[in-house]
């Protein structure tokens, strides 16, 4: 298909077919987003039902007020958290997908096992991890006590707690990533690798120069969905595992917020954690929206250059 050749004869048909999608997007996405923009300019309390226009005060509060150190820490943590989840998550998923793509007996079975964490809700994943890593009665510490005689405090040691939440978030998303990578790997024509092998390329060179570039469109897509996942969907996991805590070490000035409090979790705490400060939470929603939009723009501008779609263009 050449660019500029219309598929539909009249524009009306095209728009008509788009209507259902647009209606859903407007009702469930654009309208609520617009509402949170409006809300962010108000002091609005869920419980009292009050609403008072205060202009940009909520944003001022976030960036220059008493809570600014807290919010700076939360934004920083969210970025580090998301970077870790996306980079480590995709690297591990790619490795697993390549292993699962090998022609061994029972490959289908392995693939199925790799995919199932995706079927769990974040809340269930969180519960599983909290059972496993409970410092007193969890299976992991029971095993560690027996073998190494140690019992790490997974939930109140700041570094362990942060790593645990990152690990749980990665594990939860593995299945999703592996499915997509497997599909992409199976679409790579075998001749390309064979040709490279005949030219004398070793396994690493074949991976680096053939497989990786051919996976890049999928990686590009997965980076996008994983960023969204890391910023928005990990809420349930955090709520069950750590409730956003523990606060970090004071010596590093990381004690203004819980170390596993991400932007979305803080938003929930302010909006529904007992005080019902909807306007303040709305302002945080707007900041989060701009941050993720910014990351996406950067990704399309710079990340897009490295994507290799294969074939001629």
């Amino acid at each position: 298909m050449r660019e500029g050749t219309p598929v539909f004869r009249s524009r009306t048909t095209a728009w008509l077919l788009l209507v259902p999608t647009l209606v859903i997007l407007v009702i469930f996405l654009y309208y609520p987003a617009a509402q949170s923009f409006v809300l962010s300019m108000y002091r609005s309390n869920l419980i009292l039902g009050t609403r008072k226009f205060i202009g940009l005060d909520n944003f001022r509060e976030l960036f220059t007020g008493l809570l600014a150190p807290m919010y700076r820490q939360v934004v920083l943590q969210s970025i580090v958290f998301s970077a870790a989840v996306v980079i480590l998550g995709l690297a591990i998923s790619m490795a697993f997908a390549m292993l699962a793509n090998q022609k061994v007996t029972g490959a289908r079975f392995y693939r199925l096992l790799l995919i199932w964490p995706f079927a769990l809700s974040p809340a269930i994943a969180g519960t599983i991890f909290s059972f496993l890593f409970n410092p007193q009665v969890g299976a992991v510490n029971h095993f560690l006590r027996m073998t190494l005689g140690i019992a790490p405090r997974w939930l109140d040691n700041p570094i362990l707690a942060f790593s645990l939440v990152v690990g749980a978030a990665i594990w939860k998303e593995l299945g999703y990533n592996i499915v997509f990578y497997l599909a992409a790997l199976q679409n790579i024509p075998g001749e390309l690798n064979e040709a490279a092998a005949i030219d004398g390329a070793n396994a690493w060179q074949r991976f680096r120069s053939v497989t990786l570039p051919l996976l890049s469109p999928m990686t590009f897509f997965l980076v996008f969905t994983n960023v969204a996942y890391a910023f928005f969907e990990v809420f349930g996991l955090i709520d069950i595992l750590t409730k956003g805590g523990p606060v970090g070490p004071s010596a590093l000035h990381l004690d203004n917020a819980g170390l596993t409090t991400t932007m979305i979790y803080r938003m929930y705490q302010d909006g529904f954690g007992g005080t019902g400060s909807l306007g303040f939470a709305g302002a945080q929603g707007v900041v989060l929206l701009f941050l993720v939009a910014g990351i996406t723009v950067l990704q399309f501008r710079y990340g897009g250059r490295n994507v290799h779609y294969g074939g001629g263009s």
């Binding site: 409970n134 707690a161 750590t242």
Partner: peptide, 15 residues
């Protein structure tokens, strides 16, 4: 000692 989580009633009771 406590479990590290805020308001973790059950955690302290278990200890």
């Amino acid at each position: 000692t406590y479990t590290g989580k805020l308001e973790d009633w059950n955690g302290s009771e278990a200890i």
